[in-house]
């Protein structure tokens, strides 16, 4: 069985801080990381490999050459192979153009080794759209299941997988015919501490890098900025609310004031009986 995980390099938002006063991105020495949801997706593939053996795990990323690093990270978690598609032609892609480029790369990977399952993160933390996964599934015409919180059964023989899909208040239990595409939530697993042999393998590993020319039957008008129907029109700071009342005085006075305000000014909303 062959699982391909789509992994994206994102800025580490834990370290990059948006300075709320100056409205700027504080990028000081912020390293790029493997999108956390994608890390869980790779981990889930590793878990399945442990379950039914005979699983081969590839990861695929579209990004600049530095995205190399997150492919290595995926190998540390337990992937066997990594592909990076990197080309100026892909730059500036929105989700539609991204899913197009990735689906073309997936077709090529499938020609090397047929794919049974594709995993994606629920969303990427830099833009959090969550649109790329379902987009890829559509393009490859395979069934997608988003927001997966558990893979409960995996049958290589029947080519089916049973998953729990998170809903607003509860979950669906679904049986899906493979090949299929799943996007995973964080609660699907815990990332394990990688064994040393994986670390050594990852440190040595050089991913397969493809440019546009390495992919077949690509319609270049669907790539990158050109292939992206959405554009950013304008950026603006949200209209400032006037802000309410500042409570003055010592801590004790402020607290007292607050409670008085709540109980008197807002008694239609908040009262003690």
């Amino acid at each position: 069985m062959h699982i391909v995980v789509c992994v994206k390099q994102v800025p580490d938002t834990k370290i990059i801080k948006i300075n709320p006063k100056t409205n700027t991105l504080d990028r000081r020495s912020a390293p790029a990381i493997l999108n956390p949801y994608d890390a869980h997706a790779v981990q889930e593939a590793v878990r399945m490999k442990r379950l039914i053996k005979n699983v081969y795990i590839s990861v695929l990323s579209m990004g600049p050459p530095q995205a190399n690093a997150i492919i290595k990270k995926s190998l540390e978690i337990g992937a066997d192979e990594g592909y990076l598609i990197s080309d100026r032609a892909f730059a500036g892609a929105d989700t539609l153009a991204t899913s197009y480029a990735l689906s073309k790369a997936l077709e090529k990977i499938a020609s090397i080794r047929p794919i049974d399952m594709i995993l994606c993160g629920k969303h990427a933390i830099d833009g959090d759209t969550g649109q790329v996964g379902p987009g890829i599934a559509r393009r490859l015409d395979i069934p997608p299941v988003t927001n997966v919180i558990e893979v409960t059964e995996l049958s290589e023989k029947d080519q089916t997988v049973v998953v729990k899909r998170k809903l607003s208040g509860g979950y669906q239990l679904l049986r899906i015919q493979m090949p299929c595409l799943l996007t995973v939530e964080k609660e699907i697993n815990e990332i394990e501490y990688s064994p040393l042999p994986n670390m050594l393998k990852a440190a040595r590993y050089e991913p397969v890098v493809w440019t546009v020319n390495d992919l077949q039957d690509v319609d270049r008008t669907q790539l990158g900025l050109k292939g992206s129907p959405t554009i950013v029109g304008k950026m603006f700071t949200p209209p400032k609310h006037e802000g309410g009342k500042r409570l003055e005085g010592s801590a004790d006075e402020q607290v007292k004031d607050l409670i008085t305000c709540l109980l008197e000014e807002k008694k239609e909303l908040f009262y003690v009986k």
Binding site: Y193, S194, P195, L196, M199, L200, A202, A203, R204
Partner: peptide, 28 residues
């Protein structure tokens, strides 16, 4: 060959000779 995020916990000593290190990772 450089690996990060890995702690060498101790030297492996055999017959009075250091022969390697034990890291904090599984199969380490």
């Amino acid at each position: 060959l450089l690996i990060n995020e890995t702690v060498a916990n101790e030297c492996i000593v055999e017959n009075g000779k250091v022969v390697g290190v034990r890291t904090d990772r599984p199969d380490g």
